[in-house]
Design a protein around this nucleic acid. Structure first.
Lengths: 181, 181
DNA sequence: TTCTTCATGTAAACGGTTACATGATTCG
DNA sequence: CGAATCATGTAACCGTTTACATGAAGAA
């Protein structure tokens, strides 16, 4: 539990960052694998300060714009290391609205099933292509201990995930006797 | 939003069920693809009654144990059909704790990475094998409009998902120079 | 008779999203 | 000058989990 805590600790451990930086990283970076709003980040940062896991110093951007640069404390680093080496049981299967919809599509006509499956197929293909382009932009395998390595692995994982989903859509289409286009 | 509403409407549309039945179905049935506690189901059922989407009649089990059997109303059925035919954008990428952990594992030694990756590998393999056994027990492809068809598709999707995850773990292992066993 | 399963509810706490609120800086 | 971005916070709401609470029926 409190996984956002570890997501933040992990990022802060890489070097001084602001709450704004953290928010951007999770929501804009190539692989949006841990989205979180700033309204969640700022209170969690405050809590981590209270717990002595991170600390900050205020810097001034330009004339008077205040920016808090967070760094990890020894206690925070210890906590992060413990969590990294934890071997947890698999969590629940993530909820997928499309899957739920397909589960109940006995009520739809074949033409409607066609539309629904192809809608999903189009979106998944698009996401796959986007991920494949991202992978190319990352380039060859980076060195171990480079933070880019994590990025690359995430993109690779995303590609495999989307491919598997698309393969499943092909199976579904076949069973329902509809064509993908 | 309010996806539990549609999960419940879908199940109720298949025939009279109690809150207890719904809870069991989502948490015990072969593919636990939409887990929900009874503490969430009962209030949602009450709300659906208020909205005129389902109705119930009380039956007596044995001597005096009361059981509410829910059925769908025309309004509820209409709402379900509308939702089934909806073409939604893809939701956010589901949060995966292991993925987050691996993203920050630059801090771990190779031996530790080995342990972490293999822990996940073991669990994923186990889940895959369990799903493959389930698929066998379901048997051949059932008729369209049979509710078993949904079950089969879900299990198939689960197998493809786990296989892709395992393939990804192989890639990760290779990059970090560790062996899977 | 005791344990498991059937059966239904409520309450507190938690995590996440959306909306509210403010102001500085930079770029075109 | 105006729009986008940088930067930080709070409040209300919603969905989910965990815990509290009760009792009947069936099986060992």
């Amino acid at each position: 539990m409190r996984e956002l805590k570890y997501a933040i600790l992990g990022l802060v451990s890489r070097g001084p960052v602001s709450g704004y930086d953290i928010t951007k990283h999770f929501n804009d970076s190539l692989s949006k694998f841990w989205e979180a709003n700033h309204s969640q980040i700022y209170p969690e940062l405050k809590r981590l300060v209270d717990e002595g896991m991170v600390e900050y110093k205020v810097t001034i951007q330009g004339e008077k714009l205040e920016k808090k640069l967070y760094t990890i404390t020894p206690l925070g680093h210890e906590e992060l290391m413990d969590w990294l080496f934890t071997d947890e049981p698999l969590g629940p299967i993530p909820k997928d609205t499309f899957r739920l919809r397909l589960y109940f599509c006995e009520n739809l006509s074949q033409a409607e099933v066609n539309t629904v499956i192809n809608g999903q197929y189009t979106r998944r293909l698009k996401r796959l292509k986007s991920l494949e382009m991202t992978l190319e932009s990352v380039g060859g395998i980076p060195e171990i201990h480079s933070p880019v390595l994590g990025d690359r692995l995430l993109v690779k994982g995303g590609i495999l995930r989307e491919r598997a989903y698309i393969e499943w859509l092909h199976e579904c289409a076949e069973v329902f006797g509809v064509a993908l286009y």
